[in-house]
């Protein structure tokens, strides 16, 4: 086994693990923030539609 190739597989695996974790966490965070914002907008619209407002 060539030592450089052996190390390359290690780098590739760890890069995939951490890049994947970062992308997934960023995707979830973005989705959560978007939905929270949408929810707040809808809640304020519901309040403004209530009678007497």
């Amino acid at each position: 086994m060539r030592p450089m190739n052996d190390m390359m597989y290690l780098y590739v695996a760890y890069t995939i693990i951490w890049a994947g974790a970062f992308v997934y966490a960023t995707y979830l965070h973005t989705k959560q923030a978007g939905l929270r914002q949408e929810l707040e907008n809808l809640q304020s619209r519901v309040k403004s539609n209530e009678p007497g407002k």
Partner: peptide
């Protein structure tokens, strides 16, 4: 996220 999603859907139905 799932809870926000359902709350958004319910409010959209309401509106």
């Amino acid at each position: 996220i799932e809870n926000f999603h359902h709350a958004v859907e319910e409010l959209k139905e309401k509106l």
